[in-house]
Structure formats: structure tokens, C-alpha cells
Simulated scan of single mutants.
Amino acid sequence: MKGFSKIAFLLFLSLSIPLSVEANDKVEIQSETAIIMDSKSGKVLYEKKAHQQMYPASITKIITGIVALEQGNISDIVTVSSEATRVIGTRVYLLEGEDVTLEKLVQGMMINSGNDAGTAIAEHFDGSEEKFSNRMNDFITEVVGVKNSNFTNPHGLFGEEHYTTAYDMAKITQYAMKNEAFREIVGTKFLEWNGEGWETTLINHHRLLGNYEGVTGVKNGYVSMSGHTLVTSAERGDTELIVVTLNAPSAKIASRDTMTLLDYGFEHFETKTVDSGNYYDSFGNEYKLAEDLFVTTHKGETIEVNVSVYGYITVLGENNRLLSIKALQRKVPEKPQVMLEPKQETKSKEATNFFEHSILTWLGGKLGVMEK
């Protein structure tokens, strides 16, 4: 490798070896579109038409739920309107004038898929479903960062302009599951419901919760135009996967496809952690990794962590496969000192360093992990 640095060699490898982990093309499912995503790293492990726009049905409520929990006060009292009680589809049988906490409405919406609860939440925030939809769309674009979805109501009843993608729903769910209150609600199997119009035990509509190892949530859906939709999170050890399946022919097939994808994901991949803390380049300069860095590897794969003189941390898998690259924070010494560098820099070395820096920037852009 005379004349090539290690980074230059990585560039060569990156042109022939995919930067992302690859899925098995032999995975067979009946859902029209689907995705497996590592919840911690965000790495896509499998996709089938994951960016195709689809009708979501009640998985829409994932956005409504996380917006309500993050932008509202769960102790707020919501007075149910007559419009909310007249919403068609699955309900928790709210009564006009009934006072319910925002938290209870989110529970009824996520566990029992109550459309009336969804409408009551929307009206509480913005006075109407239409105005709340604007809030939902702003949230997913500005906070979550997805761009191929549009929502026109809080519950998922059919609308021509109400659509999403498997990828967008996986990213939205990845974000939502970081909220402990949301996570607790969608992982609740049974809940006693004592409303003015209905007293019962709610049973979570997600069929795999409690019936597949490690499932932690999150939501199912169905309207005739969308087919059966299902968003699922499951964890085993340090690995948590998100699976989205859209437009399955039946609820049974949606669940079966999801189990097939989860089986595949857990069998072939795992999540490893590069701990936050201080790291040093080859000249002893100190940098800080502020948060744990998660990388997805093949099952049993070892990783190598390196820090460049430009303050980038790179994580390599076997055969120098690039798994992640991230800019670190330079730690400034308490007492001023000269930055440690090689004693002599030739023009050739300077050109090589510039080339390496350009490569690191390009690779980081490809991986989407170049946050400062």
C-alpha cells in the first residue's frame, strides 16, 4: 500500500464494499412495503419499497401520541366535545362533556386505538383535527426529520392526502420510543378503563405484545384502503429492532411478516456501543465523544475504533468495513499548549492529510453521521 494512507485505502474499499449492512434478498413477506431498522443506530437492515408512499391507518396515532406527550401536560384536563364522540371506527366511548386527563386519552388511543380519544387530543391542542394535523406535519419534518409523509387527521381514518412510508414510520417510531412515557404506554398489555360511558379492561391491539419474545410495542392499524399496517419494536440484549409492515392482506399475515423480519434481524445483526468519553489521536491530542455511539454489526463481528488527527472517530468492522464515522469535540487544555503534531510536514504529507480530511467528510456524508 505504498503511497496510500489507511484512510485512502478505506476509500478504495468503500467503492467496492457497501457502507451499510446488507439484508438477505431471500427474506419473503407478503406485505407490500416493509423495513427493519436498528432502533439505536438507525441503520436499515432490510427494506422492501420502504420509501413508497402508503396509507398508514391507525399507526398514525404514534405521531399523535408522541406530540401529545412532548408538547402537552399529561395532567391537563380535556373536556370531550360532541364532535369527538361522533368519530367513526374504534373508540373508547367518550361522552360529550366528559373530563379526561390528557394522559388517559393517550392511553385509550394507543392501547385500544380510540379514534374519539385522538380527536379529543387534537381539539385540546388546536381546536380542530385540521389545525392539529399541521402540528403533526411540522413535528415530523422539523423534529424527527422525515419528509415523505403527510397527515390530515390524528387517528388514521382514510384520506387521499394522508400518507406515509415504511422508512418514515420507522424513523418516527425510533424517535418516539426514546420517550419513557410513550414507551410505557405502548408496552402496556392490559389497562383498567373507568370512563363515564365505558368501564372495561383495555387489551392492547398489538397481537405480538406478550406473544413474541422481546416485543415492547407499538401500534397496529387497518382501514380498507390501507390494508393491515403494523409497527413493532422488540429488544433482545443490547439490540432493539423496529419493524414496519404496510398493506398486508390480513392482520395474521402482518404479524407473520413482522415475526419473519424480527427473526431475520436478530439472527444476523447486533448493536454494539462505543462508550462516550475521552479519545486520543496518534499524536496524543484529546477529544471527547459526548454520547455513546451505536453501531450495527453482523452477528459476532468484532469492531475497531480509531481517531484521526482531524478529530473524527471511525468504527470499522471486519475487512475494514466502515460502520460509522463521527466528528468529536476537541478538548482544550486548561493551560495553553502547542497542539501536538509531527515535527516536520512535507508538501506531500500536507496533501495527503488534506485528501484524508476530504475523504472523511465524504464518508461521513454517505453515512449520515457527521454531527458535530
Rank of each mutant, 00 (worst) to 15 (best):
G368T: 09
V106S: 03
G195A: 07
Q71T: 06
G159M: 00
G65T: 00
K131W: 00
F132W: 02
Y93M: 06
D116L: 10
P249T: 10
Q71R: 13
H124G: 12
D116V: 06
Y175D: 04
K43E: 15
Y93G: 01
I172T: 04
S276Y: 10
R236L: 08
N24I: 07
Y279K: 09
V338H: 08
L262C: 11
Y167P: 01
E130V: 12
T33Q: 08
E22C: 13
Y222W: 10
K335M: 05
E301F: 09
E130Q: 13
I185V: 05
M169D: 09
N306T: 10
S226F: 07
D257H: 04
A254M: 11
G159P: 00
G108L: 04
E98R: 13
I172E: 04
V78H: 04
I77S: 08
E129P: 08
G159F: 00
S39I: 10
K61Q: 02
E142H: 02
I29G: 03
S14V: 03
F354E: 14
N204G: 09
E47V: 12
N153E: 02
N353F: 15
G195M: 06
V44H: 13
V186K: 06
K26I: 07
S255K: 03
N153K: 01
N137S: 10
A34M: 06
S324M: 08
I88D: 11
T64P: 04
S16R: 10
K252S: 15
L261V: 14
S255G: 15
K131A: 13
T271S: 12
E213P: 14
L241Y: 09
S81W: 03
T101A: 00
E267M: 11
F294K: 07
A23C: 15
R86H: 13
L363W: 04
D138G: 06
S128W: 02
V143R: 05
F269D: 13
K299Y: 05
T216F: 02
H206S: 13
L363K: 09
A117D: 03
Y46M: 15
I313H: 05
L328A: 14
A181H: 07
Y55W: 01
T164V: 03
K347N: 04
Q53I: 07
L367N: 09
F132R: 08
G197Q: 05
T119V: 15
D292G: 01
M339G: 14
G317F: 00
F158N: 08
T361H: 13
L363F: 08
Y93R: 09
D238W: 05
L323S: 02
H155N: 15
V92L: 12
A351G: 05
L95I: 01
G72P: 04
